[in-house]
């Protein structure tokens, strides 16, 4: 496959030997992980470039997309959930509930397609493809993809913050704060919200894998470089070394994200720190 359909058997054998594919499987694995410890994930079989370079070139685009998506989703979702819990059982709570569940049920690729059609094709406000150049260009090219990936997370975060706040508002330390005459605003900010966002942080940490999955579709739809687009084109071309490298890095990031979310929780909640 790598050499194309017209390669001679001799050339195929030479290439197999050069790639180490003629060696026993166990030895191939040992060599791979040995090289990995030195940061060497092999060579792209088509371009001859280092897999590490190729993956590391793509990674910042996906990280930027995921970070932007989750930041704007949290910026909307946390206040929405908090406000909804404070105004429990009012029409505002019901509307935000419907909107939250609505956004959760829209897959990112559907949101991506419609956002391209509306904001790029019909209105022509924003670009439909690419990652842009320069800081301004990159921000402009990030808006629609981040919107598409982040929308479901607005709903997730809002619902979990609302549920968590309602639970905490019934706890004794909150009742005690009310008894001391603290304002509702101060109680909400200082004693409720800080604890209520903990499940949301856990959710986001565990949801990084979902964010990567969403990024795969969104990067293809927006023809945007990134780990997702890299994996899709590598799978289509049967470029196995790239697939291996990209999946490995993605897995490492998911593990790292879970660890970071645990650290953030420990920072926000002293009880967790003591338990660690």
């Amino acid at each position: 496959m790598v050499l194309g359909p017209r390669a001679t058997p001799e050339l195929i054998e030479q290439t197999r030997a050069a790639m180490g594919l003629d060696r026993p499987f166990a030895l191939q694995m040992i060599t791979f992980f040995g090289n990995l410890l030195r940061g060497d994930m092999g060579v792209d079989v088509f371009t001859g470039r280092s897999v590490t370079t190729t993956v590391m070139e793509a990674l910042p685009y996906t990280l930027a997309l995921i970070t932007a998506s989750i930041l704007w989703a949290a910026a909307i979702g946390i206040p929405l959930g908090a406000y909804s819990s404070i105004r429990r059982n009012t029409w505002i709570d019901r509307v935000t509930g419907i909107l939250s569940v609505g956004t959760i049920s829209i897959p990112s690729f559907v949101m991506a397609l419609y956002s391209v059609l509306i904001f790029a094709v019909w209105l022509r406000w924003l670009p439909a493809i690419g990652a842009g150049e320069g800081f301004g260009g990159q921000i402009v090219h990030l808006i629609l993809p981040a919107f598409a990936v982040g929308v479901p997370w607005v709903g997730y975060i809002a619902r979990i913050v609302r549920a968590s706040m309602l639970e905490i508002m019934g706890e004794s330390h909150v009742r005690m704060a009310r008894a001391f005459g603290l304002t509702e605003r101060r109680i909400t900010r200082a004693y409720v919200l800080r604890i209520a966002v903990l499940p949301a942080v856990t959710l986001i940490g565990a949801g990084v894998a979902h964010l990567f999955s969403a990024a795969v579709f969104v990067e293809v739809i927006f023809a945007r470089p990134g780990i997702g687009a890299l994996i899709v084109s590598a799978v289509n071309e049967r470029n196995y070394t790239i697939v291996l490298g990209a999946v490995l890095v993605t897995t490492a990031i998911i593990v790292l994200a879970t660890l970071i979310s645990d650290i953030i929780i420990a920072w926000l909640d002293p009880r967790q720190r003591e338990g660690m």
Partner: peptide, 19 residues
């Protein structure tokens, strides 16, 4: 020259004025 895995993406990009 901009590579895209899906020709439909290119069609939308053309309509959006990017190609």
């Amino acid at each position: 020259i901009m590579p895209m895995d899906d020709e439909k993406v290119a069609e939308r990009a053309y309509e959006a004025g990017d190609l």
